[in-house]
Amino acid sequence: MHDFTPVSAVIGGVFIGLAATLYLLFSGRYAGISGILRGAVFGEDDRGMDLLFIIGLLAGGVLWVLFAGKPDALGAPLPLVAIGGVLVGLGTCISHGCTSGHGVCGLGRKSASSLAAVATFLVTGIATVFVLHHLGGVPLP
């Protein structure tokens, strides 16, 4: 499934933007998923709120799968996925944000440091796919 899907992408993007906006309006927080997940796991500030956000997030995904069909499985071998997970956790902790915090919210605030972070993780992400897939022969899903 490598088809370009601009319409569903923009619709989904608008949902994400609305979710981030409402979250800021109601709770006064910026919807960074990595930070919310960290709060839900380690219990910072208001753990119940973080947990409910994550439950809602997963429920949204499940709802759409029930409605639209099956998702695809993890594409990479499990050890690689585990290494990736650790790097994502470390990276988002150190730089204070991920695709949602720096991408959706940071760019929405017109933050220069978020733009720098987004540019950096796009470059290293693209480089990693290139090394693993094109040079290393790891298949893509």
């Binding site: 569903s8 992408a9 949204g60």
Partner: peptide, 17 residues
């Protein structure tokens, strides 16, 4: 409200793939 925002966010991620 956090749960509703999470739900919207999750729907957005899923719709967009």
């Amino acid at each position: 409200s956090a749960a509703v925002c999470g739900l919207l966010f999750g729907l957005g991620l899923a719709i967009s793939g």
